[in-house]
């Protein structure tokens, strides 16, 4: 649906040339949730801004439904942009318009009649669960509510794609969860393809099907989220999954178990229970969890004990407690 073909973007400034995007080829499929993860300055925003041609590539082509967007003129581009919604870290709502008038704006551009505009906006307000805020102004809303308005506004023209540039980075963990849940719902119910930029692995983990890891303008690796998680090939991916340095000490002959916490329990009892269960200290290789209202979200990597019975007991415990886990192979480091 969206195809990058050898796209490069260079910025020229007084201090010289910056290659923000370096020869990227990428294929985003219809209906998927695609994540682009990387540290700040990696070029993620610049890359995604090519999808709606907010940025023109220095080299290469971008295809949207097999149409080469770099060849479209201004007017054609404006029509394409209605098929590509976008939301931002800072929400970017119109401060002097009510919630309703914010949502109606793209429909005004599209020349939709007044009655129909309001009807559509009300449907969207119901979708994002903000019906009672119709006549409020953005300054009267919380961050999460603002992002919901932005999502409703981005969906007004029934786009095929929704681009999310650090959409949850300004929100607290609970609100982040609920916004990501809403995005997933939009993806599943409305079939909207979603492209998510983030620097947080937990965002990718919660809703993405596939992920591309970006660093210094280059896509270092891309694949299914599970594969990248269990077997990160690039150093960037490894640093993102395990922010601490322990990963460096992983050896290929160690077997690793990844336990995913999805709010079923808290983190500490699991660790101590596992220790008691298999009568040995659990070697935690890394953890990337977050405590939200007493429940843990995220993941933990532990070393699987060499003794088969201990391994069995660990897995049994995890099964009993409904915790998802999987075995990861060699981490090449």
């Amino acid at each position: 649906m969206i195809r990058f073909e050898n796209v490069s973007k260079k910025f020229f400034s007084k201090d010289g040339e910056i290659v923000a995007v370096n020869n990227v080829s990428l294929n985003i499929k219809k209906g998927e949730v695609f994540g682009i993860i990387g540290f700040s300055g990696a070029g993620k925003s610049t890359l995604v801004r090519h999808i709606n041609l907010l940025e023109h590539p220095t080299e290469g082509n971008i295809f949207f439904d097999n149409v080469n967007l770099t060849e479209a003129n201004e007017k054609e581009l404006r029509v394409f942009r209605r098929k590509i919604g976008m939301i931002f870290q800072q929400f970017n709502l119109f401060s002097q318009r009510t919630v309703l008038d914010n949502i109606v704006y793209p429909l005004e551009l599209a020349g939709v009649g007044k009655k129909e505009r309001i009807k559509r906006a009300e449907e969207l307000l119901a979708l994002v669960d903000l019906v009672d805020k119709k006549y409020s102004y953005p300054s009267q809303l919380s961050g999460g509510q603002k992002q919901r308005v932005a999502i409703a506004r981005a969906l007004a023209t029934k786009p095929d794609v929704l681009l999310c540039d650090e959409a949850t980075s300004a929100l607290d963990p609970i609100t982040t969860r609920s916004i990501l849940g809403l995005l997933k719902e939009i993806n599943e119910k409305l079939g909207v393809t979603i492209v998510i930029i983030t620097h947080e692995m937990k965002v990718v983990e919660q809703i993405c099907d596939r992920v591309a890891v970006m660093s210094e303008g280059v896509i270092e690796e891309a694949g299914n989220v599970k594969d990248v998680f269990l077997n990160p090939k690039s150093s960037t991916a490894r640093r993102l999954i395990m922010p601490d340095d322990r990963v460096k000490y992983l050896y290929n002959d160690r077997r690793i178990l990844r336990i995913a916490f999805e709010g079923q329990s808290s983190y500490l009892p699991v660790v101590s229970s596992l220790t008691i269960q298999c009568e040995t200290m659990i070697n935690i290789l890394g953890a990337n969890t977050e405590n939200i209202g007493g429940k843990a979200y995220g993941q933990m990597l532990i070393e699987i004990p060499k003794e088969a019975d201990k391994e069995k007991r660990i897995k049994q415990y995890l099964d009993e407690h409904g915790l998802y886990y999987e075995e990861g192979g060699g981490v090449n480091g």
């Binding site: 394409f80 976008m86 704006y105 793209p106 506004r153």
Partner: peptide, 14 residues
């Protein structure tokens, strides 16, 4: 806010 202008552009405003 430049971000607001960017959002308007992304929505297909002339």
């Amino acid at each position: 806010d430049a971000g607001v202008i960017e959002a308007a552009k992304a929505m297909g405003s002339s």
